[in-house]
């Protein structure tokens, strides 16, 4: 994803751009996803300003997708809010996972980095933290990765809103999402405990798919984490 380099010798600006470069390959998968969101939002009758604003106010791909579907089905607002909250529950796990690396930062940094904590930015930032540690100015890397992704999401939303109808419907652009996650997960399956966590999480996700509000997502994630812990204890 990135080339490792001695952290202490890099300026804040260099760390920031290293973060941008770290997230760059992933943007290939994020861009088409953002365009599809923009197009779907317009098809669901969401106004241009609201469709664009959702990408910075909610700033969470899968929750925004589901919102467009629920708006199309004229779902009551409170149900949509509840669904967004449940679909994004997994971000609490990301927050817990990355908290130890940002605990000494001032509050305004914590607020900004929390806002930028999407699936993709998290994966890139945690990989860097695991390699470089939390010392020095690694938070500038996180900021670079997060803002790189944010900019791509706003731009691709904009393109989707205005050009989305030009995308031929048989183009499977939504497949970019699982491909991006495969590229993020598979190279990091370095031991049997991590692999077990991934397999159990995935299998339970299939078994619990029919649960309402995509609750299966969080149930399966917890099952995977517990399986990883158990595997680590019994080698």
């Amino acid at each position: 994803m990135t080339t490792s380099s001695p952290a202490e010798s890099l300026t804040n600006r260099q760390q920031f751009w290293r973060g941008v470069r770290g997230v760059l390959p992933i943007l290939l998968g994020v861009f088409p996803f953002g365009m599809i969101y923009g197009a779907l939002a317009r098809q669901s009758g969401i106004s241009v300003p609201a469709a664009q604003a959702m990408s910075s106010i909610v700033f969470a791909g899968s929750a925004q997708f589901i919102t467009t579907q629920l708006v199309r089905l004229a779902t009551p607002g409170i149900m949509i809010v509840l669904t967004i909250a449940v679909v994004n529950l997994r971000h609490a796990l990301y927050s817990a996972s990355i908290a130890g690396f940002v605990q000494n930062l001032p509050s305004h940094w914590k607020l900004i980095l929390a806002y930028l904590l999407t699936d993709e930015a998290y994966a890139v930032a945690i990989t860097n933290y695991n390699r470089e540690g939390a010392q020095g100015n690694q938070h500038w890397f996180f900021l670079g990765a997060g803002l790189g992704l944010w900019s791509c999401w706003q731009l691709s939303t904009f393109m989707g809103i205005f050009l989305g109808t030009l995308i031929p419907p048989h183009w499977p652009l939504d497949f970019a999402l699982p491909l991006t996650f495969i590229a993020l997960v598979v190279p990091n399956l370095k031991d049997s405990a991590a692999t077990t966590a991934a397999l159990v999480g995935g299998i339970v996700a299939i078994l619990t798919f029919s649960l309402p509000y995509r609750l299966g997502l969080i149930v399966a994630a917890l099952a995977g984490i517990l399986a990883g812990l158990w595997m680590e204890k019994t080698p």
Binding site: A123, A194, T195, A198, G201, A223
Partner: peptide, 10 residues
């Protein structure tokens, strides 16, 4: 185990 578990669910 958060990254492998959560992302592979999706």
């Amino acid at each position: 185990f958060v990254p492998p578990a959560v992302l592979s669910v999706i």
